[in-house]
């Protein structure tokens, strides 16, 4: 009883001391807090260094998403690239966990330090590809999936990706 009384008095004293400590919160809309580049806010789709969309519609973000708020459909472009025919994030379900970014093999999907996404109408929280796509590589400046991947696309033939030898001539017996 006495021990707990002492503990309570200590608590009260500690709290009282806080009368003189500095305020942790800031006057938000006027004073913006610093958000690190890796802050997990609004999700964007980025482009590769050459300016083409990075997303290859592999569906890994969608399957990683714990609230299943990403839906997309793959399509194949004329130049051989895979791309999302549509890419939809239902931000009213999104919990900004960043799993999609973790899962993305092409660095296409990235979380940004923007968290100010209030809407009066929930329907406006549904973002389609045109709302998500930005014109820049985001946090990862140099990565271009198709330069690494063995899939041939227009402008990058077989054997022209990183660490690839020229295509094999099947009819030759030379080693």
């Amino acid at each position: 009883m006495l021990k707990s009384l002492r503990s309570q008095l200590t608590t009260i004293w500690t709290i009282l001391q806080h009368s003189f400590s500095r305020c942790e919160t800031v006057q938000y809309p006027e004073q913006k807090p610093y958000l690190a580049p890796r802050y997990r806010g609004r999700i964007v789709l980025t482009t590769d260094p050459d300016g083409d969309e990075r997303c290859v519609a592999c569906n890994l973000c969608a399957v990683a998403c714990p609230v299943d708020c990403i839906a997309l459909q793959q399509g194949t472009r004329e130049d051989g690239r895979w791309y999302p025919e549509f890419f939809r994030i239902n931000f009213s379900r999104c919990i900004m966990c960043g799993m999609c970014e973790e899962a993305c093999p092409t660095n296409a999907i990235q979380l940004t330090p923007d968290f100010e996404m209030c809407e009066y109408d929930r329907q406006n929280m549904v973002y389609e590809k045109e709302h998500l796509q930005i014109d820049g590589p985001g946090k990862y400046h140099d990565y271009n999936f198709y330069r690494v991947s063995g899939l041939a696309i227009k402008g990058k033939d077989k054997g022209e990706a990183q660490n690839e030898a020229q295509p094999i001539d099947v009819k030759s017996l030379l080693p």
Partner: peptide
Amino acid sequence: QRYSGRTAMRANVSVH
């Protein structure tokens, strides 16, 4: 078990 996009597939029609 890994079926994805449950809350986004029809979100273009209605978010509900």
